[in-house]
Structure formats: C-alpha cells, structure tokens
Amino acid sequence: MSAIISRIAGRGIPLRGNDIDTDRIIPARFLRCVTFDGLGAHAFEDDRQQLARAGKQHPFDEPRFSDGIVLVVNGNFGCGSSREHAPQALAKWGKGIKAIVGVSFSEIFSGNCTAMGLPCLRISQADADAIQTAIEADPAVEVVVDLNDLSVAIGSQRWSAQLADAARKQFLTGQWDALGELVDGLPQVKATAARLPYLNAFAS
C-alpha cells in the first residue's frame, strides 16, 4: 500500500494555455538518462529560456511562485508523448508539484500522475481562470485541494472539481501504486492467459 492522499494545501503556480505538451514540460534531450534524478531543474526549460530571451518570465521562473506546489493549468495539459519524465520533472521541480488542477488532461499524462501519487483534478474553464487570477493577485494564498469533497479552495472561495472515481478511490485508500495489487492477481492473470486464443489455439 502507498500513502493515502486526501488533501493538498500550499501555494499555487498558475500556468495559462491549452495543449501544453510533454515535449514542452521536459524537452526530449533530457530524456537521455536511465534515472529520473535531476529532471526537476529542466522542467519547461525551453519555454522558460525563450520567454527570458524575450524579456519575460515563465511562471516557473517567477520568484513569487517559487514555493508553489499546486499547479493550475488549462485544457489538454500533458498531451503528446507518453513520457513519465514530464510529471516526474514537475514532481521534482522546486518544492515539488503535489497536485495539478486544470480544465482537462491527456489520458496518458493523468494516468502517469496517478501512478506517481500526483492527483490531476478537473475544473471548468471559468474556474481555472478564477483560480489562476486569484493566485496571480496574491501568490501567498493557500490553495487547498480536497479529494474527499472534490473541491479546490482559496480562503472562503470554493470551486468544485472532478476526478475519476477510480483514481479518487486509489488516492483515498492509498492504492495509487497499482503494482502490488496487479502482482497479487497473478494467478488470475495466468488463468486469463490460458484462455487467450493467440496464446493457445494458434500460438506461434
């Protein structure tokens, strides 16, 4: 069993934009590695540098967001490559991203996050915007992500969020690391294999 995850509270990082793909979260050249160590420093490396050259700052570079642990994004976040290096980089960035709140996530990305114990909660476009605006107005506010009642709150403001039932149960029961359970099922796995035609009737 892995740790139970039910409530994450801390500062936020607003990151606006749809379709932010995993190549942007961690450019491919940093995937030339055999461990996930050290990926954190390179999260959004190219986006950050590009903005810096243009005299602007990426939210991940803004000192006012440097303590952020709740990342607030927009639609289709984490699309593209299946690389788990992307959520691993986020989890190892600064204080470590502990929850992501956004309008929608690519399936593979949110699946990877779940397997790492990093919940991805969905909210409406208007609510994402409101939360991002609230954090930008006061980066010191505490953002509270609650998996019990599926909500995101800042002070007295509260927004309802969504999380697939299965993922929610996995976090609340500490079963997000599925491996133990999957391996426990090995006898049934073997029974399944024994009835698959391509492993039996016409195995090649």
């Binding site: 690389r83 788990e84 397997a115 099922g185």
Partner: peptide
C-alpha cells in the same frame, strides 16, 4: 495504447495494467 514508465513496470511485473 501508450503507457508511462510506472505502467511499463506494471506490465513487466504482471503483464497487466490497471485501466479504465
């Protein structure tokens, strides 16, 4: 389907995935 590295581990060890 494509999977992440934690799931690669799951398939290696169990030849299965937890999927919705």
């Amino acid at each position: 389907f494509g999977i992440g590295t934690s799931q690669v581990r799951d398939v290696l060890a169990s030849q299965t995935l937890a999927m919705s």
